[in-house]
Computed example of a mutant assay.
Amino acid sequence: MNARTLERAPSAPRAGRAPSQRPAGPALRATGAALSILAALLLGFVANLGPLGDLRHGRDQQVAHAALREQLANATAPVGPRTLEGEQLALGAPVGLLEIRTLGLREVIAEGTTSEVLTSAPGHRRDTVLPGQPGVSLVMGRQAAYGGPFAHLDELRAGDEITVTTGQGKHTYKVSGVRRAGDPQPPVLAAGAGRLTLITGAGRPFLPGGLLRVDADLVSAAQPAAAPLYSAGTLPGDEKPMAGMESAWLSLVLWGQLLLLAGAALAWVRARSGRREAWVIGVPVLGALGFVVADRAAELLPNLL
């Protein structure tokens, strides 16, 4: 073999060197981006309704406890649907401390019963009086998600004690019964009497098949009441039992678009820089956006979930 033949012969591949890979086509990149977005959404949704939601609920309760404790100490805690300045109470404002020793339950009650409010605390329904006042006071709470503060209401029995501390003092209730759909209604209240009704989902966790109610009669002295700003007919629909927040659609669409853009950017980075760089950048970004989108989507689900 002469020198010219050697020059034309193809060189053998070096040992240990992998052959070059062809870049992924547009279809493969789009598929990768779609799978990344789907994974981020599923992870965020499960974490949001599960462990991260529980942590969020615990943190929000700590903040609410501190705020309510300060208001009680300064005699500025709400005693009606308006603040001392005459303004309507904001959704999520702390209005009382609910304690059920039988269940080991100690939760701050917030104003309003939207899905967003109930992620942080049991909520006082705004078409009823505050706890401790004459009339029926309704408090709604989640059965399983975001800490599931009302998960064990079905374990209460007649005679169990419930206390609620508000700006008007500490109020004591005695449980009269637990009822589900089809059970008889409690008797009509006498003039000046008070009742607390706790409401949550009934059935399997995350798959409620109806409502569970716990009725408790006020056994301490009833305090003066201001008329609620809403009636059963004027209460916003997203504050009723098993309702979702229709207003969450707009923010869901906007955050969803941002998640789509992040997924497309991840596919571009992977094509230009490689898989490792794409995952280092993309995992925290997609994870955070997936959690936010899942949080907005959870607001569309029943508020007692």
Rank of each mutant, 00 (worst) to 15 (best):
A221V: 07
A294P: 05
E107W: 00
G25E: 11
M140H: 08
V283K: 04
G244D: 03
V79A: 03
T197W: 01
P284Q: 07
T166L: 02
G96M: 00
E161D: 04
A262P: 02
L6Y: 02
R270V: 12
A158P: 10
R8D: 13
I100H: 01
A67I: 13
R126W: 02
Q133D: 00
L300V: 01
Y230R: 11
A18G: 09
H171T: 04
A33M: 04
P19Y: 03
V283C: 11
T172G: 01
G201I: 06
N2K: 09
L196W: 02
G141T: 06
G167D: 04
L68E: 00
G256Q: 12
G167W: 00
K174Q: 14
L211R: 08
E99L: 07
S36N: 05
A145R: 06
G192F: 05
L254R: 09
G112A: 03
A144T: 15
R22N: 05
R195I: 04
L305R: 06
P241M: 07
E239T: 09
Q257T: 11
R195N: 00
A190W: 00
R59N: 08
A222G: 04
T102C: 00
P149I: 11
E155T: 10
R69S: 14
L189H: 07
R8L: 15
E161S: 07
V292D: 03
A193G: 08
A18L: 14
Q71S: 13
A75D: 15
S20P: 02
S11M: 13
V283D: 05
V188H: 11
V108F: 05
R180P: 05
A265Y: 12
A288S: 14
H57P: 00
G92E: 04
V178A: 05
